[in-house]
């Protein structure tokens, strides 16, 4: 993965804006920002951001590649779409934030312990195995993401919720043995692989 990053750096040299335009979802909108700051002000989680969207756009223009991609700012987006609705230049800010997060992840620059990133990764890995989310395994993976003893603590804390779900037949303990699968899980895997190939080609990534 870091190889991927080095190749990107070599390819775009100091033109991070161009890199974003080429490779980040809706990245070609970044240039349209006029620095009014309404996105930053409209964000309900704005307080939690290290850099506001409008500032991230300015950092991209200023070529601050590492600073942007290593930031956890865009991981804070909860997709409320307030910023998109308000942006006077109609930038799809939510999408750009997700695109940047994804790109940072692909470049292996995203903060490793960033919770949103962790949950997204667990979710994705869980999903692509069978084409369905295995909720039990997903819950357990979440419990144990910070180590075994923390996992036990989490499980104990959530015990009554878990039992309740089981009672209500919303959680099947036997899923631990594999659980539901899609009919054609290899087909799904092929589909995902193909989608990734297309995306990589479009964005100019080196194939994985």
């Amino acid at each position: 993965m870091s190889n991927q990053n080095q190749q990107a750096v070599a390819r775009y040299q100091n033109n991070f804006l161009k890199e974003v335009e080429d490779r980040v979802e809706d990245g070609d909108w970044v240039k349209m920002c006029m620095q009014c700051g309404v996105c930053a002000g409209s964000c309900p989680l704005g307080d939690a951001w290290e850099h506001t969207p409008q500032k991230i756009f300015m950092m991209i223009r200023a070529g601050k590649r590492e600073e942007v991609l290593k930031s956890d700012a865009m991981w804070m987006c909860t997709s409320c779409y307030n910023c998109i609705v308000r942006c006077p230049r109609k930038l799809p800010i939510t999408h750009i934030m997700h695109g940047l997060a994804n790109y940072a992840h692909r470049m292996n620059l995203a903060p490793q312990r960033q919770p949103t990133r962790v949950i997204a990764k667990i979710f994705w890995d869980n999903l692509v195995k069978t084409g369905r989310v295995n909720e039990l395994k997903f819950s357990l993976a979440m419990y144990f993401k910070d180590g075994f003893s923390q996992g036990i603590k989490n499980a104990m804390a959530m015990q009554s919720a878990g039992l309740g779900l089981m009672k209500a037949k919303r959680l099947n303990p036997f899923e631990i043995f594999g659980g539901h699968k899609c009919k054609d899980s290899s087909g799904i895997k092929k589909m995902i692989a193909k989608a990734r190939e297309i995306e990589d080609r479009k964005k100019g990534y080196t194939p994985l």
């Binding site: 009014c36 309404v38 930053a40 002000g41 409209s42 006077p88």
Partner: peptide, 28 residues
């Protein structure tokens, strides 16, 4: 203040409270 005001809410005394971010630097 260099900022496009994001929103206005009213406080209990009917004062409009302006929310936003000053984009020169980063001041909420």
């Amino acid at each position: 203040v260099k900022s496009k005001v994001a929103k206005i809410v009213e406080d209990k005394d009917a004062n409009p409270v302006l929310h936003g971010v000053d984009t020169e630097g980063y001041h909420r």
